[in-house]
Design a protein around this nucleic acid. Structure first.
Lengths: 204, 204
DNA sequence: CTATTAATGCGACGGTTGTTGCATTAAGAT
DNA sequence: ATCTTAATGCAACAACCGTCGCATTAATAG
């Protein structure tokens, strides 16, 4: 994959790092002001006090800029909610997702939009979600320890089942945020899980 | 305005209809060949044997073209699968979805990508999905009649729960198509539904 | 048939996007 | 201090996008 991050060991400090910080700050500011549609390389370069050519050479296009922004934001120390029950954890997670997807400026939607146009942004998005779901697996582990779920429950499949409806409504179906949806989706996933839907091998 | 003749009426037959058909065919062909990124008004007009100005005047932009393709696709007489069981219907539906999303060339993915950049395409996509889910409600009605589900089951919520994981993996998570996923997602939804997850009002 | 007029064809324009060749700057090595 | 070279600045360029005014075509009315 093409990495827009600064060269590994050529000149890590100094101007390059400063320019990168200026540009990424400018991207975030432009994104907050004008959204993804209004995010142009020219505006970013101008705000960063950098020439357009520099941006084009180091990041390629808008998708590359967003990929770098989200790579930089990937290490925010996020942790899965811990409410004491499986249903509570999943519901809290879904509320977080709905809040993030409905937040303004719609940075999440911007990354998703960019991921369809730039392989770099698509890969950054894939990494971000992979990381998030991995961090959520502890929710299932705790539930198994509590005896809420049968041992051997597939954490990833349960998590996807619980969260996918929220993403589906907000991203693809584009229905307005439904306050009841996060809890309802969590509830359905818990019922399926306690019925053993995610234990053992997938059905033939 | 100068004559008592009835309000100016369009000319549905003849050249206009022919041009529209030519252009929409060209859009589909260009989409299949170059994907959404390579879809330009110029190429569409050239392939359709039509001048660029005509396309700009009637459709406005690429998003308008895609929206028209969406609308044209809505009248294809699609019907929900009918296999004799709820689980079979949902699994067949999920297999259809996975096949459509994995089809090469990825026209469905191109249409989704377009929906993030054009309000017109987004609205057309929303209408198409609304129509599809409405046509699928008969699956739940049949299952209730068979006694597989409790009366009062919320068809829409069940359908979304069954199908959302497939979309989530293929569109957002971008994992390679999993042959077991359609059946597994259908299975989990059936288990949740038989447990009463979609009967009665949503949880508090 | 002729007249009307909506739809299309045509060429040109300004604006934007992304690229390229070359000059300049500055970080790191000696 | 001096040298080397990667990174940046700069300007010009081609390509594309969308719009406009005007000429031409063709569908429909009378």
């Amino acid at each position: 994959m093409t990495s827009p991050t600064p060269p590994a060991r050529s000149r890590p400090g100094g101007r390059s790092a400063r320019v990168r910080a200026q540009v990424l700050d400018a991207v975030r500011a432009e994104l907050a002001e004008h959204g993804y549609d209004g995010l142009t390389v020219d505006a970013v370069a101008a705000r960063a006090g950098v020439h357009r050519t520099t941006v084009y050479r180091r990041w390629g296009d808008v998708g590359g800029l967003l990929a770098d922004v989200y790579d930089a934001a990937g290490d925010d120390g996020w942790e899965a909610p811990d409410t004491g029950s499986l249903r509570g954890d999943l519901a809290a997670l879904n509320h977080e997702i709905q809040a993030a997807m409905s937040a303004r400026p719609p940075v999440m939607e911007a990354l998703i939009a960019a991921s369809f146009r730039s392989p770099a942004a698509a890969e950054a998005q894939r990494r971000l979600w992979e990381d998030r779901y991995t961090r959520c697996e502890v929710i299932v582990e705790r539930a198994v320890r509590r005896g809420e779920l049968p041992p051997g429950t597939d954490a990833r499949r349960l998590l996807v089942t619980a969260t996918a409806p929220v993403y589906h409504h907000l991203v693809l179906l584009r229905t307005p945020p439904d306050p009841a949806l996060p809890d309802a989706a969590a509830d359905a996933a818990v019922l399926a899980a306690t019925a053993g839907a995610f234990a053992g091998p997938p059905p033939a």
